[in-house]
Design a protein around this nucleic acid. Structure first.
Lengths: 110, 110
DNA sequence: CCAATCCATAACCATGTGGTTATTCAAATC
DNA sequence: GATTTGAATAACCACATGGTTATGGATTGG
């Protein structure tokens, strides 16, 4: 249920604001993993992991690939694009540091 | 549920995750404003604005300049640096994924 | 076919968060 | 000096959030 129209950046910031969730995302950025594999070492229960994954998926940060009874998750390479878009709005505040990321964004948009 | 390692990126993501707070930050990125000026047009009470400003200040996103009975706030030009650092940390990761994909496509072409 | 496994969902609980109004203190203004 | 004004703090409240255990549906394996 979404009574208010949140921007894409909203969902991204909120999703990444939780350290546990950000850790899950970082693990998925390295390799595709099942929920089972993610649960091991996460320090929380499997349902908690599933809920975090649902949030990450809702923010467009991860993609899921159901295969039989297990679900494989991986990072969405373009998931961070809206975050880069938002940061570009404030480019003036740190323009000198922005060039490399801007270049990356261009490559991701291909 | 005791997140021990609270990184700077944590505070940034959490602070920017709230749309009201991000709007305040964006206004301050344009010009320095008093709490009074920020409250007008924010749609919330003055104490609510003050609390948001305290969060933004805690995240290093804004700086305050008390002057007499009013306090002027402005965006901290270096406030977004940790966020940029976090993205740079993952830049290599994205690039790797991207390179692997390019590599795969190249091999398929032959 | 039956049992075990993987994952999502439901139901619940404690704490955090964002808002309010009331209050206080310092500083302008009269 | 008295009053008004700006901003932070306190006290409180409703709801969101992140965790748990319990459950169920689908799939795999013996």
């Amino acid at each position: 249920m979404e009574p208010i129209a949140h921007s894409a950046a909203d969902a991204l910031f909120r999703a990444l604001g939780d350290p546990t969730r950000r850790t899950l995302f970082e693990r998925l950025a390295r390799s595709e993993l099942t929920v089972r594999a993610l649960t091991e070492g996460a320090g929380i229960s499997q349902p908690a992991v599933s809920k975090h994954l649902a949030v990450l998926k809702g923010a467009g940060l991860v993609l899921d690939r159901p295969q039989g009874r297990e679900t494989h998750y991986r990072a969405n390479p373009r998931g961070l694009a809206p975050l880069l878009d938002w940061m570009r709005l404030h480019e003036a505040m740190w323009a000198d540091s922005f060039d490399r990321l801007e270049d990356l964004l261009r490559r991701m948009d291909q």
